[in-house]
Design a protein around this nucleic acid. Structure first.
Length: 205
DNA sequence: GCCAACGTTGGC
DNA sequence: GCCAACGTTGGC
């Protein structure tokens, strides 16, 4: 399976919270701050009401693994492996639950855009590629007994009627606080239900 | 524990 | 191709 690279572009002008986190760290990186329970997106780790659904966004470079590649996969499902960033891992491992909906974002693309919706078809389990010395994602610190890296299974739900480009997201005020824009280099980020509605409305044109 | 060097993502 | 802004590494 193609590598889903952990990353995201940092906000051009860091929000005050980001600046504070970067300036006052000692104990935590910026990503750790953002993904901690006390951070701006801590809510996505809290217990939820039974049946409540949460929303996420994952990135993939289309040359590595595209939306069409997902549609062509058995059961239109893929193992989302290759995440090698702790903050992204935390969202994936601790946040994502069965049935959650996930935007599929093409990064480093022309244009970079959200192109489809998937769902979590299987909750987190260890990333086997981290155990394989022959694999790009090999990490000798991750062992079967104490795995560092995890995957979820994602199944395609539907393509967006129209892709929602990064440019559209950036010029939409209601999306200014999206984790996609505000925290850097994360391949897995939370999406609020309000943001989800706005984006799906944009996709319908 | 500090921090400079380095590697990476990904928009532009 | 450039480079900002991250995370990681390793010398001390």
């Amino acid at each position: 399976m193609a590598n889903k690279k952990p990353a995201s572009r940092p906000a051009k002008k860091p929000a005050a919270t980001l600046r504070r986190a970067a300036a006052a760290p000692r104990t935590a990186t910026v990503s750790q701050f953002f993904t901690s329970k006390g951070g701006p997106w801590g809510k996505c780790f809290l217990p939820r009401a039974k049946g409540a659904r949460r929303f996420w966004l994952v990135k993939s470079e289309p040359l590595e693994f595209s939306w069409d590649d997902l549609l062509a996969s058995p059961g239109q499902t893929t193992r989302w492996d290759g995440v090698r960033n702790h903050a992204a891992r935390n969202f994936l491992r601790d946040g994502m639950k069965l049935g959650d909906l996930v935007f599929f974002y093409h990064s480093d693309a022309d244009p970079s855009a959200i192109v489809g919706v998937c769902e979590v078809a299987h909750e987190a389990y260890p990333d086997l590629t981290a155990f394989d010395p022959a694999h790009d994602g090999y990490d000798p610190d991750s062992t079967p007994a104490t795995p560092t890296w995890f995957v979820v299974d994602l199944r395609a739900v539907e393509a967006l009627p129209r892709p929602v480009t990064l440019a559209m997201i950036k010029r939409t005020k209601a999306l200014a606080q999206m984790a996609l824009l505000r925290v850097g280099r994360l391949s897995v980020t939370p999406v609020t239900s309000a943001e989800w509605k706005v984006i799906t409305a944009l996709a319908r044109g």
